[in-house]
Design a protein around this nucleic acid. Structure first.
Lengths: 182, 182
DNA sequence: CATACAATATATCAGAGTGATATATTTGTC
DNA sequence: GACAAATATATCACTCTGATATATTGTATG
């Protein structure tokens, strides 16, 4: 059996509500973004294979509904639950920014500072984004079950703490690079 | 031109010292680990292509040296420096742990707590690892130029701050999940 | 009402990256 | 001298990414 991680993301999303490939992409961009990403080039072939394997089935809500929506099957639910209990594997990391920084000892200081300022701004935006979603969650704008709100909030809190750590690190590092004003 | 990021990592490593494919892997596991990863399945084909493109050349330190070592060429240096000035692209993220957590609302609490305890331990180990390398750097055990030490330390500091944030988040989240003792 | 533009929806492909595996040599060490 | 561990190179199936093509539906604006 192939260990296609996209399959589990898709099963998770379909366990909430039957969706089209496009819906899956939207959910992944909106809710999972920050710790997971999916793209069409992977979603559609995976859906096709999952259908063949009996993990999902085509459901039609309305009679005259045209778009294809997929729902999770009993087999799919079992597969998903088994995965939830597995030990998570560490995903490989690749930060182009960090790689550049390590090899920047020959660069002019202002270039390096510029890099760090950009990076800081990125994390400020990320943090604001997380705070916005958190606010929506707390005001109950999203239609989401109460049990799930706790986990949503936990994930957002992780993003916020992480962004704050990065902003602090940027400040520290920029400070050290700045020529001292006497 | 293909945008193979491994090429830049390899160029960076070769700009420090001529190395074999195996040396590149070792350096990447030891120094870059935490923000970058390389594997043989990518290193060897990339080296082959870089040789064809004139980015690197075969150098022989000793006369009777058997293993093939590659050095960076002038063209390779130019390519590398141009890359350093480019805006860094964001790499896609995939955290299986976070994905599981989001969909864990139906799981028993103790399972979720167990997941978080494991995750916390992972980050404690990461932090200790970074602190160890930092100590070595400060004691000057590593043979590394003074200009480069600053960047090495900055990267380690980032890892440490990041780990600390994750440890704090695990503690917070476990605390909230723990049944209150009156 | 037309027309233009954005959002919805599905699909494919080249190429980047991963992880596992095979294999052979050299170097230490008991 | 035997055996294990480290060094070294290579290949392959599979996963994942990013770009692109294409057609339809919804909606806003003159």
């Amino acid at each position: 059996m192939l260990k296609n991680k996209s399959m589990y993301a898709i099963l998770g999303i379909l366990s909430l509500a039957p969706s089209s490939g496009y819906d899956i992409k939207k959910y992944s961009d909106k809710v999972l973004s920050g710790f997971w990403n999916e793209n069409f080039g992977h979603i559609y072939p995976t859906l096709k294979r999952m259908l063949e394997d009996g993990m999902i089935e085509i459901v039609s809500g309305d009679k005259n509904e045209k778009k294809v929506r997929y729902g999770i099957t009993e087999k799919g639910k079992q597969e998903f639950d088994a995965w939830l209990l597995e030990e998570s594997q560490q995903q490989p990391v690749r930060s182009e920014f960090m790689l550049k920084l390590l090899f920047s000892s020959g660069q002019p200081r202002e270039n390096v500072i510029h890099m760090l300022v950009n990076y800081k701004e990125l994390h400020i935006k990320n943090k604001e984004n997380y705070l916005g979603i958190l606010k929506d969650l707390e005001e109950g704008i999203q239609e989401i079950s109460k049990e799930r709100v706790f986990f949503h909030k936990a994930i957002l809190r992780k993003g916020i703490l992480s962004s704050e750590a990065m902003i602090r690190w940027c400040d520290e590092t920029i400070e050290e690079l700045q020529p001292k004003q006497p």
